[in-house]
């Protein structure tokens, strides 16, 4: 069993990187954090107080844009997306727990653009485990982990937040 990084430690590091990222952008431009259900929303809730943002957190349900509807169908218990701010012209920081194939982020981008045209979208993830199947990269990464394809990494939460690995089907 690999030893996994502490989520709190990674969040502190991500908070610093986010402050620097936001400082580089036009201060006139609104900024909003959007977490992808469910882990990304937990992380956004922890990062938001570190950043002094006027906009509340957005929560994204990417289910309607998944590319595997024909294979796995529709999951009934998904919270609808909730973006309580104007997406048009906003700098959006998309937050997720684990970046792997990149398909979730692709779906998230589609969902965000259904609400409007953001000025820019940046990506912050707790863990980048490699294995990308799409040309997608994160701007801020808490930790890079090398994992075996049979290993699944998952964020447990919401309180406390903890990373966990289990061996499952590939």
């Amino acid at each position: 069993m690999k030893s996994l990084p502490e989520v709190d430690h990674l969040l502190t590091k991500m908070g610093q990187a986010l402050r620097a990222l936001i400082a580089r952008h036009d201060p006139e431009r609104p900024v909003a954090l959007i977490g992808i259900h469910t882990g990304g929303v937990w992380l956004a809730e922890r990062l938001h107080p570190l950043l002094d943002l006027a906009n509340p957190i957005g929560a994204l349900n990417i289910h309607f844009h998944r590319d595997d509807f024909d294979r796995i169908g529709i999951h009934p218990r998904v919270q609808p997306s909730h973006l309580p701010f104007e997406v048009d012209g906003c700098l959006i920081v998309l937050i997720d727990d684990v970046l792997y194939s990149g398909r979730t982020v692709r779906a998230a981008l589609n969902e965000i653009f259904d609400y409007g045209r953001p000025a820019a979208v940046r990506l912050a993830v707790l863990v980048d485990r490699g294995g990308r199947e799409l040309p997608i990269a994160a701007d801020i990464v808490g930790a890079h982990l090398k994992l075996n394809p049979a290993e699944q990494i998952k964020l447990l939460g919401p309180s406390p937040l903890k990373l966990s690995i289990r061996r499952g089907r590939t």
């Binding site: 796995i72 792997y100 294995g131």
Partner: peptide, 15 residues
């Protein structure tokens, strides 16, 4: 969407 998509609990998927 339930009749036209496969409907089942979501298996764990790579993120």
């Amino acid at each position: 969407s339930m009749t036209l998509g496969a409907y089942q609990e979501m298996p764990r998927e790579p993120a």
